[in-house]
């Protein structure tokens, strides 16, 4: 390779690599490192796994952590079971071939909530379901048993556009001939969807699930905007994101800790890593062998 092109390679890559390494990769790695330390008299002291042991087993800290973990799993479960089927249904209807020009209009309008800030979505729904307006009598956000499912459904309402668009992208690219072949054979639209189109969507289910998983285990804004940092009532809507915020920066009563905050981030990192690894090993590989077989 010529010297000129090698220099060009470096010049083109340098800004992206520099910014990305400094402000994305380095902080994540450094934060992982900090979770093995504690601060004593302004000095970092290596403590091994002590922070992790504290968060996972301490009589005071562990219940908070496991509560947030279980809540986060529930938050993810509701997204997976409600958001994806609705997104799929909407995408299937949009691509049913019966809509003509209305297709683009519906697609745009249904996607609008996804473009809003979570903060706004939280307050809008808070107002609508507040007993003041009389649509709902029970204080859904004020009860421990209903707060988290209500918040999850608000989030589903907002983000249903994402799986819709992903499924839509696959469905519009299915060749018309496939569909017409089915129609000539006398299959109904319903049958064509399940027998012809649905199998082609399989890889997208994996992608949508992992994207939802990463987003959900990293969520914060909605819970914080609606319920505050302590994710009430009585921590019933606490998830990893709010636990991370409180542990790192503290709340009214408790002071925050840099190293314990970093430890919560490391545990979130681990959770996301496990999810991604499971996806790559099981779903991704099976899909590839499935594609090879068919």
């Amino acid at each position: 390779m010529q010297r000129g092109t090698r220099l060009a390679f470096v010049v083109f890559l340098a800004p992206a690599l520099l910014v990305y390494t400094m402000f994305a990769i380095y902080p994540i790695v450094d934060s992982l490192r900090l979770s093995f330390y504690t601060v004593e008299q302004g000095q970092l002291v290596f403590v091994g796994l002590a922070n992790f042991v504290y968060l996972l087993t301490d009589a005071f800290a562990a219940p908070r952590f496991w509560n947030a973990f279980v809540n986060n799993v529930q938050f993810f479960g509701i997204h997976l079971l409600v958001q994806n089927p609705i997104g799929l249904m909407l995408a299937a209807l949009l691509t049913s071939g019966l809509l003509r020009r209305a297709e683009g209009i519906y697609r745009t309008l249904i996607f609008i909530p996804t473009t809003l800030s979570v903060v706004i979505v939280g307050f809008v729904w808070q107002l609508i379901i507040s007993p003041l307006w009389g649509l709902v009598d029970t204080p859904l956000l004020g009860q421990e048993s209903t707060a988290l499912p209500t918040l999850s459904l608000m989030s589903v309402w907002q983000y249903v556009g994402i799986p819709m668009v992903f499924f839509y992208a696959v469905l519009v690219n299915i060749p018309r001939e496939l569909e017409e072949a089915g129609r000539v054979d006398g299959a109904s639209g319903w049958q064509i969807f399940w027998r012809v189109k649905f199998p082609l969507l399989a890889p997208m289910f994996g992608i949508v699930s992992i994207v939802t998983y990463i987003a959900n285990f990293n969520a914060f804004d909605l819970i914080y905007a609606v319920q505050g940092a302590s994710a009430g009532p009585n921590f019933s809507s606490d998830i990893f994101g709010t636990l991370f915020y409180r542990t790192f920066l503290g709340t009214g009563t408790a002071t925050g800790s840099v190293t314990l905050g970093a430890t919560v981030a490391s545990l979130m990192f681990l959770t996301i890593l496990v999810g991604v690894a499971l996806y790559l090993v099981f779903i991704h590989r099976r899909l590839r062998s499935y594609q090879l077989a068919s």
């Binding site: 060009a8 992206a16 990769i25 902080p27 934060s31 990293n218 994101g241 905050g261 490391s266 991604v276």
Partner: peptide
Amino acid sequence: YKIRIAPILLAYLAIGIMIPIRLGTVSLLQ
């Protein structure tokens, strides 16, 4: 450019799609 490390660098840059930058917040604030 057909440079041997190009695919590795692309993979390195792609990691950020999977791992949210928020997880580095503690260190970023410092």
